[in-house]
Design a protein around this nucleic acid. Structure first.
Length: 279
DNA sequence: CCTTGAACCTGCGGGC
DNA sequence: TGCCCGCAGGTTCAAG
């Protein structure tokens, strides 16, 4: 579910709620998610203070004053919910963190594709989850030259390339379609077929679509959380994602003729595009 | 190396 | 109403 903008918004919300907070207790309600969680996690975390919360790719990094980092990945259905100590624990609340400022954070993940590990800050770059991650799209690492080089001669389709976390991190199924829409490029195009001006548009589109989504999270939620305490998910208008058969927002053409936004399957996942505005 | 497809797991909505 | 199907914002692994 969560892609870079949602994970970023979760991190900002957690940072705000947990400034200078110390973990007083952790309830671990099952031993594994997609992978086993660390042994004795509650004992290891108790008494540690939060020094910072940020992200790498779609991983949340909760930095602790003992020199370790709690890594969390939300998978497809993971959520972080901020509440109070006496809030009732619900179905699929796998981890419940209690803090000395009265705040409780629940990690809820029905499908359990999420991940949790506790790692030494010095060795985090060697962690198997981090070893093969690509560049961050919102840093200076994403340049025209970099993308041109990465696409050159590659025959896979551009949509699948955007989802590949070994190249660029953070883009998921929604923002891959949305970025390609903004760039005017069909998801079915092969990487190597993109012309120089299309690569230029794609770099711009990736940055803009991710930044706009983060901004929407910040502005629509103020402190990044909804009324029920849930972090990172916000009302966001998508141009093409999950809008098969509907009119593209910038199109004036006749839906009855064009059939509206198209849906195709690539690599087992849905892609959406406007055949009029994307070529 | 590449590409494809299945697997992990639960829930939801649509069709019958 | 229930049942069956396909689908869901991610990642990894095996097989060709």
């Amino acid at each position: 579910m969560p892609e870079l903008p949602e994970v970023e918004t979760v991190c900002r919300g957690l940072s705000k709620a947990l400034k200078n907070a110390t973990i007083t207790a952790v309830e671990q309600r099952r031993a594994d998610l997609r992978a086993p969680m660390p042994h004795n996690l509650p004992r290891k975390l108790k008494g540690q203070a939060i020094t910072a919360i940020d992200r790498r790719a779609k991983y949340i990094q909760i930095h602790l004053d003992g020199g370790s980092v709690l890594l969390l990945h939300l998978g497809m259905s993971g959520r972080m919910v901020i509440g109070k100590h006496d809030d009732q624990t619900g179905k699929h609340d796998h981890l419940v963190f209690h803090f000395n400022n009265g705040v409780t954070v629940r990690f809820n993940d029905p499908r359990r594709f999420g991940l949790c590990d506790l790692v030494n800050a010095q060795r985090i770059q060697n962690h198997p989850w981090f070893a093969h991650l690509g560049i961050e799209p919102l840093t200076s690492a994403l340049t025209l030259d970099w993308l041109r080089q990465a696409l050159r001669g590659r025959k896979t389709n551009i949509k699948t390339f955007l989802l590949d976390q070994r190249r660029i991190v953070g883009i998921g199924n929604i923002y891959a379609s949305e970025a390609l829409y903004r760039a005017g490029i069909r998801p079915t195009r092969s990487c190597g077929s993109l012309k120089p001006d299309e690569v230029t548009r794609l770099v711009t589109a990736i940055r803009k679509v991710l930044k706009a989504a983060i901004a929407a999270g910040g502005s629509t939620l103020r402190d990044y959380r909804k009324a029920d305490g849930e972090l990172g998910y916000f009302q966001h208008q998508f141009a093409v994602y999950d809008r098969a058969g509907m009119a593209c927002p910038d199109c004036t053409c006749d839906i009855a003729k064009t059939g509206g936004i198209k849906r195709v399957t690539q690599g087992g996942r849905s892609s959406f595009y406007c055949a009029t505005r994307q070529s």
